[in-house]
Every structure is written in C-alpha cells, then in structure tokens.
C-alpha cells in the first residue's frame, strides 16, 4: 500500500509481525511498518471480525490496535518500532488461554 523513500544512509532493523521479520527504520511507528507489510492490516475487529488497517495515524481512531511485545490493544500509531519488537495482529475477540 505504501513504500518508503529510502535514504541509503539510514540504518534499518527487524521487527517481527506474527513471527515474520519486517524491515523498520528509526522514526517508524509500528503502524507505518504495518502499512508497508502485506496484507497491510493491523487486526480483525472483535465485533464482526472485519479486517482493519491503521486509519488516522494520530491516535484518535483506534483501528491500529495490535499486540506489541505481549501488551494487548496498543495504539500502534503512537509506538515507535524498536529492534526485535514482536507485533501480533489480533484476530477477532481476544481469547484468553490459561
């Protein structure tokens, strides 16, 4: 959906989206990385399990909620990507397993 105008001088690192490595760069929010990585979504909603992607990027729509390093319902547009970060895209209702 989006591509990054890469500046050759800028360093990059990996984050893991549902276990798959994706490239991130300093200054990227997690939502920005999600929008460069197919299938370009953040989650499936808990109500009707429809796919959603980051929408507003400024913390007001809550459509970019995902699980980041085991914390659920994180607004990924407000969190900077860090090396090794683990992002999981929720599928529907949060199911707690013990």
């Amino acid at each position: 959906m989006f591509r990054q105008l890469t500046d050759p001088g800028v360093s990059s690192f990996h984050v893991y989206i549902d276990g798959v490595a994706a490239i991130a760069r300093p200054g990227d929010t997690v939502a920005a990385v999600l929008l460069r990585t197919a299938p370009h979504i953040a989650r499936h909603t808990p109500v009707k399990e429809t796919p959603r992607a980051p929408f507003c990027l400024m913390g007001v729509c809550f459509d970019c909620l995902a699980t980041v390093d085991d914390e659920t319902s994180v607004q990924t547009c407000l969190v900077e990507a860090r090396p090794g970060m683990r992002i999981e895209r929720p599928r529907g209702k949060l199911r707690i397993t013990l």
Binding site: M1, F2, R3, L5, C77
Partner: peptide, 11 residues
C-alpha cells in the same frame, strides 16, 4: 503523517 515520520508514500 506517514510522509513526515517515515518518508512513506503510496506505492
């Protein structure tokens, strides 16, 4: 915002 923070444009 994607442009400002990540130099990211529609592909």
């Amino acid at each position: 915002i994607l442009l400002k923070t990540s130099a990211q444009i529609p592909d």
